[in-house]
Protein backbone atom coordinates (compact mmCIF):
# COMPACT_ATOMS: atom_id res chain seq x y z
CA UNK A 1 0.00 0.00 0.00
CA UNK A 2 1.83 3.09 -1.18
CA UNK A 3 -1.06 5.57 -0.95
CA UNK A 4 -1.52 7.30 2.40
CA UNK A 5 -4.88 8.65 1.29
CA UNK A 6 -6.88 7.20 -1.53
CA UNK A 7 -10.14 8.58 -2.85
CA UNK A 8 -12.14 6.77 -5.49
CA UNK A 9 -15.40 7.56 -7.22
CA UNK A 10 -16.31 10.20 -4.65
CA UNK A 11 -19.56 12.14 -5.21
CA UNK A 12 -21.49 14.59 -3.11
CA UNK A 13 -24.52 16.81 -3.72
CA UNK A 14 -25.95 19.58 -1.60
CA UNK A 15 -29.64 20.23 -2.13
CA UNK A 16 -29.46 18.75 -5.61
CA UNK A 17 -26.30 20.63 -6.62
CA UNK A 18 -23.36 18.35 -7.43
CA UNK A 19 -20.44 19.61 -5.35
CA UNK A 20 -18.11 16.69 -6.06
CA UNK A 21 -18.47 14.43 -9.06
CA UNK A 22 -16.83 11.04 -9.41
CA UNK A 23 -13.54 12.20 -7.95
CA UNK A 24 -10.60 9.83 -7.67
CA UNK A 25 -7.01 10.54 -6.70
CA UNK A 26 -4.28 9.20 -4.47
CA UNK A 27 -1.89 10.91 -2.12
CA UNK A 28 1.36 8.92 -2.07
CA UNK A 29 2.85 8.17 1.31
CA UNK A 30 5.48 10.62 2.55
CA UNK A 31 4.87 13.10 -0.28
CA UNK A 32 3.39 16.55 -0.33
CA UNK A 33 0.44 16.99 -2.64
CA UNK A 34 -1.58 20.12 -3.36
CA UNK A 35 -5.28 20.23 -4.09
CA UNK A 36 -5.89 23.35 -6.14
CA UNK A 37 -8.66 24.89 -8.18
CA UNK A 38 -10.75 28.05 -8.42
CA UNK A 39 -12.98 29.14 -5.55
CA UNK A 40 -15.93 26.84 -5.11
CA UNK A 41 -14.23 23.94 -6.90
CA UNK A 42 -14.92 21.68 -3.92
CA UNK A 43 -11.50 21.51 -2.23
CA UNK A 44 -12.73 22.09 1.30
CA UNK A 45 -15.64 19.74 0.62
CA UNK A 46 -13.11 16.98 -0.07
CA UNK A 47 -11.43 17.71 3.28
CA UNK A 48 -14.80 17.67 5.00
CA UNK A 49 -15.63 14.30 3.52
CA UNK A 50 -12.27 12.79 4.40
CA UNK A 51 -12.52 14.03 7.99
CA UNK A 52 -16.17 12.95 8.19
CA UNK A 53 -17.87 16.32 8.63
CA UNK A 54 -19.94 15.40 5.59
CA UNK A 55 -21.09 11.94 4.60
CA UNK A 56 -20.48 10.77 1.05
CA UNK A 57 -23.15 10.06 -1.57
CA UNK A 58 -20.97 7.57 -3.40
CA UNK A 59 -17.36 6.44 -3.48
CA UNK A 60 -14.69 5.26 -1.11
CA UNK A 61 -12.11 6.95 1.10
CA UNK A 62 -9.14 4.99 2.41
CA UNK A 63 -6.56 6.25 4.92
CA UNK A 64 -3.40 4.16 5.32
CA UNK A 65 -5.29 1.18 3.98
CA UNK A 66 -8.28 1.58 6.31
CA UNK A 67 -11.65 2.24 4.71
CA UNK A 68 -13.02 5.29 6.55
CA UNK A 69 -15.92 6.03 4.20
CA UNK A 70 -18.58 5.32 6.79
CA UNK A 71 -16.50 5.66 9.95
CA UNK A 72 -17.79 8.21 12.50
CA UNK A 73 -15.83 11.46 12.18
CA UNK A 74 -14.43 11.15 15.71
CA UNK A 75 -12.62 7.89 15.01
CA UNK A 76 -10.99 8.92 11.77
CA UNK A 77 -8.15 10.76 13.48
CA UNK A 78 -7.01 7.44 14.96
CA UNK A 79 -6.48 6.06 11.45
CA UNK A 80 -3.81 8.73 11.11
CA UNK A 81 -5.50 11.64 9.34
CA UNK A 82 -5.72 15.10 10.93
CA UNK A 83 -6.56 18.50 9.49
CA UNK A 84 -6.39 22.23 9.95
CA UNK A 85 -9.16 24.66 9.20
CA UNK A 86 -9.60 27.39 6.65
CA UNK A 87 -11.26 29.68 9.20
CA UNK A 88 -8.99 28.96 12.12
CA UNK A 89 -10.94 26.98 14.68
CA UNK A 90 -9.00 27.35 17.92
CA UNK A 91 -11.01 26.96 21.11
CA UNK A 92 -11.47 30.42 22.51
CA UNK A 93 -12.22 29.22 26.06
CA UNK A 94 -8.82 27.54 26.28
CA UNK A 95 -5.25 28.81 26.38
CA UNK A 96 -2.80 28.07 23.58
CA UNK A 97 -1.24 25.24 25.55
CA UNK A 98 -4.64 23.76 26.37
CA UNK A 99 -5.62 23.85 22.70
CA UNK A 100 -2.54 21.80 21.96
CA UNK A 101 -3.38 19.38 24.78
CA UNK A 102 -6.74 18.78 23.12
CA UNK A 103 -4.79 18.07 19.94
CA UNK A 104 -3.06 15.20 21.79
CA UNK A 105 -6.38 13.76 22.83
CA UNK A 106 -6.39 10.87 20.36
CA UNK A 107 -3.22 9.57 22.01
CA UNK A 108 -4.50 10.08 25.57
CA UNK A 109 -8.16 9.19 25.63
CA UNK A 110 -8.25 6.21 28.00
CA UNK A 111 -10.23 6.59 31.21
CA UNK A 112 -7.00 6.68 33.20
CA UNK A 113 -5.66 9.46 30.99
CA UNK A 114 -8.91 11.40 31.31
CA UNK A 115 -8.74 11.24 35.09
CA UNK A 116 -5.04 12.07 35.44
CA UNK A 117 -4.80 15.44 37.23
CA UNK A 118 -2.08 16.61 34.86
CA UNK A 119 -2.50 20.21 35.98
CA UNK A 120 -1.38 19.25 39.48
CA UNK A 121 1.75 17.54 38.21
CA UNK A 122 4.53 20.02 37.41
CA UNK A 123 6.05 19.42 34.01
CA UNK A 124 3.74 16.56 33.11
CA UNK A 125 4.86 14.93 29.87
CA UNK A 126 1.78 16.16 27.97
CA UNK A 127 2.60 19.73 28.83
CA UNK A 128 6.30 19.16 28.08
CA UNK A 129 5.48 17.72 24.68
CA UNK A 130 3.10 20.56 23.79
CA UNK A 131 5.62 23.19 24.89
CA UNK A 132 8.31 21.48 22.85
CA UNK A 133 6.10 21.53 19.78
CA UNK A 134 5.43 25.23 20.36
CA UNK A 135 9.12 25.92 20.79
CA UNK A 136 9.87 24.14 17.52
CA UNK A 137 7.68 26.69 15.76
CA UNK A 138 9.10 29.56 17.79
CA UNK A 139 5.78 30.15 19.51
CA UNK A 140 6.66 29.20 23.09
CA UNK A 141 6.07 32.75 24.30
CA UNK A 142 2.36 32.34 23.63
CA UNK A 143 1.82 29.13 25.62
CA UNK A 144 -0.31 30.62 28.38
CA UNK A 145 -2.11 33.26 26.34
CA UNK A 146 -5.79 32.95 25.54
CA UNK A 147 -6.19 32.48 21.83
CA UNK A 148 -8.68 35.27 21.14
CA UNK A 149 -6.25 38.19 21.28
CA UNK A 150 -3.40 36.65 19.27
CA UNK A 151 -2.44 37.91 15.81
CA UNK A 152 -3.90 36.05 12.83
CA UNK A 153 -0.61 34.56 11.69
CA UNK A 154 0.15 33.18 15.14
CA UNK A 155 -3.28 31.60 15.48
CA UNK A 156 -2.86 30.05 12.07
CA UNK A 157 0.44 28.47 13.09
CA UNK A 158 -1.05 27.22 16.38
CA UNK A 159 -3.88 25.59 14.46
CA UNK A 160 -1.22 23.75 12.47
CA UNK A 161 0.77 22.74 15.57
CA UNK A 162 -2.43 21.41 17.13
CA UNK A 163 -3.09 19.24 14.07
CA UNK A 164 0.46 17.85 14.21
CA UNK A 165 0.15 16.96 17.90
CA UNK A 166 -2.36 14.25 17.06
CA UNK A 167 0.69 12.38 15.74
CA UNK A 168 -1.10 11.89 12.43
CA UNK A 169 0.74 10.46 9.43
CA UNK A 170 -1.52 12.32 6.98
CA UNK A 171 -2.12 16.04 7.47
CA UNK A 172 -4.69 17.96 5.49
CA UNK A 173 -4.03 21.70 5.57
CA UNK A 174 -6.72 24.08 4.39
CA UNK A 175 -5.06 27.23 3.01
CA UNK A 176 -2.21 27.29 5.53
CA UNK A 177 -0.49 30.29 3.88
CA UNK A 178 -3.60 32.46 3.38
CA UNK A 179 -3.29 35.78 5.17
CA UNK A 180 0.32 35.25 6.25
CA UNK A 181 2.99 37.88 5.65
CA UNK A 182 6.14 36.89 3.71
CA UNK A 183 8.23 36.04 6.77
CA UNK A 184 5.41 34.00 8.28
CA UNK A 185 5.02 32.22 4.95
CA UNK A 186 8.72 31.36 4.97
CA UNK A 187 8.47 30.02 8.51
CA UNK A 188 5.46 27.95 7.47
CA UNK A 189 7.35 26.58 4.49
CA UNK A 190 10.22 25.48 6.73
CA UNK A 191 7.77 23.95 9.15
CA UNK A 192 6.01 21.94 6.44
CA UNK A 193 9.33 20.80 4.97
CA UNK A 194 10.42 19.62 8.40
CA UNK A 195 7.18 17.67 8.75
CA UNK A 196 7.63 16.13 5.33
CA UNK A 197 11.19 15.20 6.23
CA UNK A 198 9.82 13.28 9.20
CA UNK A 199 7.73 11.25 6.78
CA UNK A 200 4.40 12.99 7.27
CA UNK A 201 2.19 12.96 4.21
CA UNK A 202 0.74 16.37 3.43
CA UNK A 203 -2.33 17.30 1.40
CA UNK A 204 -2.52 21.07 1.04
CA UNK A 205 -5.30 23.27 -0.30
CA UNK A 206 -3.64 26.52 -1.32
CA UNK A 207 -4.13 29.43 -3.69
CA UNK A 208 -0.57 30.77 -3.57
CA UNK A 209 1.05 28.95 -6.50
CA UNK A 210 4.58 30.00 -5.56
CA UNK A 211 4.03 28.43 -2.20
CA UNK A 212 2.57 25.29 -3.78
CA UNK A 213 5.49 25.14 -6.18
CA UNK A 214 7.98 25.36 -3.35
CA UNK A 215 6.64 22.46 -1.29
CA UNK A 216 4.54 20.14 -3.44
CA UNK A 217 5.75 17.36 -5.71
CA UNK A 218 2.32 16.79 -7.15
CA UNK A 219 -0.92 18.71 -7.64
CA UNK A 220 -4.51 17.69 -8.22
CA UNK A 221 -6.67 20.32 -9.94
CA UNK A 222 -10.39 20.51 -9.26
CA UNK A 223 -12.99 22.51 -11.12
CA UNK A 224 -16.72 22.32 -10.42
CA UNK A 225 -16.17 19.25 -8.28
CA UNK A 226 -14.31 17.29 -10.96
CA UNK A 227 -10.66 16.47 -11.34
CA UNK A 228 -9.43 18.21 -14.48
CA UNK A 229 -5.71 17.55 -14.19
CA UNK A 230 -3.08 15.86 -12.05
CA UNK A 231 0.70 15.82 -12.04
CA UNK A 232 3.68 18.07 -11.32
CA UNK A 233 2.72 21.75 -11.18
CA UNK A 234 5.04 22.66 -14.08
CA UNK A 235 3.18 20.23 -16.32
CA UNK A 236 -0.31 20.89 -15.02
CA UNK A 237 -0.11 24.66 -15.42
CA UNK A 238 0.35 24.26 -19.17
CA UNK A 239 -2.79 22.15 -19.43
CA UNK A 240 -5.40 24.08 -21.47
CA UNK A 241 -8.25 22.88 -19.24
CA UNK A 242 -6.49 24.24 -16.19
CA UNK A 243 -5.76 27.55 -17.91
CA UNK A 244 -9.41 27.81 -18.88
CA UNK A 245 -10.55 27.09 -15.34
CA UNK A 246 -8.33 29.83 -13.99
CA UNK A 247 -9.11 32.53 -16.58
CA UNK A 248 -10.05 35.70 -14.84
CA UNK A 249 -8.47 34.57 -11.58
CA UNK A 250 -4.95 35.34 -10.46
CA UNK A 251 -3.99 31.72 -9.98
CA UNK A 252 -2.45 31.09 -13.42
CA UNK A 253 0.46 33.51 -12.97
Amino acid sequence: MSAALSISGLSKSFAGVRAIRDLSFEVPKGRTTALIGPNGAGKTTVFNMVSGVYGVDAGRITVNGTDVTHMPSRRRISTGVARSFQNIRLMSHLSVLENLLVGQHVRASSLAALLTPYRLIPNHRWKREARAALAESGLEAYADETVGALPYGVRKRIDLVRATLAGASVLMLDEPAAGLNPSETNALRDHLRALAAKGVTLLVVEHDMHFVDSICENVVVLNFGEKIAEGPLSVVRRDPKVREAYIGTDGED
Binding site: A82, M91, H105, T116, Y118, R119
Partner: peptide, 23 residues
Protein backbone atom coordinates in the same frame (compact mmCIF):
# COMPACT_ATOMS: atom_id res chain seq x y z
CA UNK B 1 -7.28 19.56 37.08
CA UNK B 2 -7.84 16.58 34.78
CA UNK B 3 -8.00 16.04 31.05
CA UNK B 4 -11.71 15.31 31.49
CA UNK B 5 -12.30 18.95 32.44
CA UNK B 6 -10.16 20.03 29.49
CA UNK B 7 -12.34 17.95 27.18
CA UNK B 8 -15.52 19.46 28.65
CA UNK B 9 -14.27 22.96 27.90
CA UNK B 10 -13.19 21.87 24.44
CA UNK B 11 -16.68 20.52 23.76
CA UNK B 12 -18.21 23.74 25.02
CA UNK B 13 -15.88 25.87 22.95
CA UNK B 14 -16.13 24.04 19.64
CA UNK B 15 -17.88 20.68 19.55
CA UNK B 16 -17.23 20.09 15.85
CA UNK B 17 -13.48 20.51 16.13
CA UNK B 18 -13.34 18.57 19.40
CA UNK B 19 -15.04 15.70 17.59
CA UNK B 20 -12.56 15.85 14.71
CA UNK B 21 -9.71 15.77 17.21
CA UNK B 22 -11.12 12.49 18.53
CA UNK B 23 -12.98 13.72 21.60
Amino acid sequence: RTRFALCLTAVKSDATVADLLGV
